[in-house]
Nucleic acid binder design. Structure first.
Lengths: 382, 382
DNA sequence: ATGAAAGCGCTAACAG
DNA sequence: CTGTTAGCGCTTTCAT
């Protein structure tokens, strides 16, 4: 039954085509047999290489290489034969050998530095998640694969062949940066290194962005603005707090700063709660950390505070698919754009150009939503 | 002022130490000078290699290699000298050359196949996000970096040196699988390929898992259970629906299936809404897609349906940091565990072992929460 | 204990 | 048009 079906399904072929196909098939068979003989004479199994192809096609390795890579100089008939052999014996080029020859690996690394050596945690931080995704896409467009590196990488660099590295949020004086420099491995930082004009870096002006959020709160009638930040010493956090403090100084407001370990849900919930109680509770809160946005919403609801009447809320995050946060004003850092610029900068450098400018400051966008909107939308805001 | 500070800060050293340091420094200086001379005689700048180190240390390359890699056979004094030279001239091994020699690249790829060639989208799917994160960590523990590959990779494999590939959710008859097989590149699939006992694959028993969710709904009094699934033909979706249909058949219930493109928020919101209205609206809904959980919650609220009184809800997702979903019953596929097993399977294979068993089925866990709990918690449930 | 040389698989330069 | 050769940078025999 099955056999019958197969016979019936066979398309009619004219004699010439049949001959042609038969010849092809026979040649392939011949090549395979020859290869099998050669392979039999070897102890360990090895994937076929150009030399094998050349030997079976009875040409020199250089010719085989040129034929397989479409260099025009090979006689079409010869090239055809060589390619047939390659296909018959299952030849594929060895990417490592190519890399060595071309000194180009087609891989760039991404190293996310913060969180004090904690295991990789970008997933819970929407910024890193989006950054990673966008960097991977941008890298692939440039023909690189993006490799995820451990936060504490150093000597592993001896064994992983990388064309360059993106370092996200390096702390001040980061030894990894030193290491990469010593190794002459091209790198780009996301935040950090803004003081060195020779370095390649991307980021936004956090201090300015936070000030703009505070200004917005003020325009909506806020009289005491608080900030809830992570407890690390990353550039991003430091700059955000600096912007907040500057704004407070300029606006003669006493700062109200809460810090929390954002990897700890209990501590974070408690920190959010602290901001909701007491006679001097703030009437506007900004948090620098995306996951904390949810905690603030939950804590406000528990404290029976309504937004925007009792409390103005905003958080720093990238777009999510979470509709429960659709009402919360959001400061977007444009993680995708930053990642694209970082890849662009890095790829250009790897490919021997000297990209200008070397520092790229990406603008932020404050998406004003109902959580911080008492009056109408101010002109010129998104 | 600055100079004075520096002088004052210099620690006191005794003569011997000073001499020692001076010698070291002088040697280093000498080595550097010799290297500079050699480098001057070359046209293009090149990073120092073992040959350079050997030449300056006046030993053979093999000796230099052994000294640098801590092979015991080198005289300690010689080894010390070689290492000093290496440090002085800034030598670091070339990872690509090592890879070629050892035929091991230290990189494994991850290719996420679904979504019909859409740009990488794992971030919005918590399963892939967690999978990616866990796979990266597990790979690093085994000394591999995880490289993100494009969903439609094929000939790029010629240029990216990979020791193996994890393929997530390959469609039936996936050409990538064929390609990897031809290339003799070790690979592991996440779902898919369960029919072939020689293949390496990891996954869970989706059909069984969905049936257990339906059983749970029924135990809580549900009389008509609906399912909201993605509109693709991934193994995961197909199996989930099969489980649902089986359960319906066994329980003499007419199936109510909604499908949606989960990358489209508007369509997804509409699909969620459709399940909330009409005289025959279901009183229990399960969705196979994590991001859809939020949409169901939002739609239910809009339709003034309370859970669990009016509607039982459950979704398939991994743990999140989103407290607004803390009340929704969740089927966890244990993405992390699956990723770990996948890496384990792949790494073992790369390293020449034949891992047993070759198929690994990871259990699922139904986290029962208030959204689907009318009576008390049934015994034996998490 | 050390040196010399082979070779991983590929491509490019130079000959013919 | 095709063959030969020389490396890319490293590790690993095999001699000494």
């Amino acid at each position: 039954m099955l056999a019958a079906t197969r016979v019936n399904a066979a398309p009619p072929v004219d004699a010439a085509t049949a001959d042609y196909h038969a010849t092809m098939a026979d040649d392939a068979e011949l090549y395979r047999r020859r290869y099998a003989e050669m392979a039999a004479g070897r102890r360990s199994h090895r994937r076929p290489n150009v030399k094998d192809v050349a030997a079976i096609a009875e040409v020199a390795v250089g010719t085989a290489s040129d034929a397989l890579n479409g260099k025009g100089r090979v006689n079409p008939a010869t090239r055809y034969r060589i390619r047939s052999v390659a296909e018959a014996i299952g030849y594929f080029p060895n990417a490592t050998a190519r890399s060595l020859k071309r000194s180009r690996n087609g891989v760039i690394g991404l190293c996310i530095r913060p969180f004090g050596g904690a295991p990789l945690q970008y997933i819970s931080v929407s910024y890193y998640a989006r950054f990673l995704n966008a960097a991977a896409v941008a890298a692939l467009e440039r023909k690189y694969a993006l490799a995820i590196l451990p936060p504490d990488i150093s000597t592993e660099l001896d064994d992983i062949a990388l064309d360059g590295v993106i370092v996200a949020d390096p702390p001040p004086g980061d030894p990894l940066i030193e290491e990469l420099r010593n190794r002459s491995v091209p790198y780009v930082t996301d935040f950090g290194e803004v003081d060195d004009p020779t370095s390649l870096c991307v980021g936004n002006d956090q201090a300015q962005a936070v000030r703009s959020v505070c200004d917005h709160f003020k325009s909506q009638g806020a009289r005491s603005v608080a900030i809830l930040a992570a407890d690390g010493d990353e550039d991003y956090t430091i700059r955000s707090l600096r912007g907040y403090e500057q704004w407070c100084a300029e606006n003669k407001q006493s700062p109200r700063i809460e810090r929390t370990n954002i990897l700890d849900p209990v501590a974070t919930a408690a920190a959010a709660q602290r901001l909701m109680v007491g006679p001097d509770r703030p009437d506007a809160i900004y948090t620098t950390e995306a996951p904390v946005g949810n905690y603030l919403v939950t804590a406000a609801r528990a404290a029976r505070l309504n937004t925007p009447e009792d409390l103005l809320l905003a958080y720093c995050a990238e777009h999510t698919m979470d509709p429960t946060l659709d009402d919360i004003s959001m400061l977007s850092l444009h993680a995708e754009e930053i990642a694209q610029e970082a890849v662009d900068l890095l790829a250009s450098t790897i490919e021997g150009q000297d990209p200008k400018p070397r520092h790229r400051v990406i603008g932020t966008t404050l998406h004003i939503r109902s959580s911080s909107l008492r009056q109408g939308v101010p002109p010129g805001s998104a």
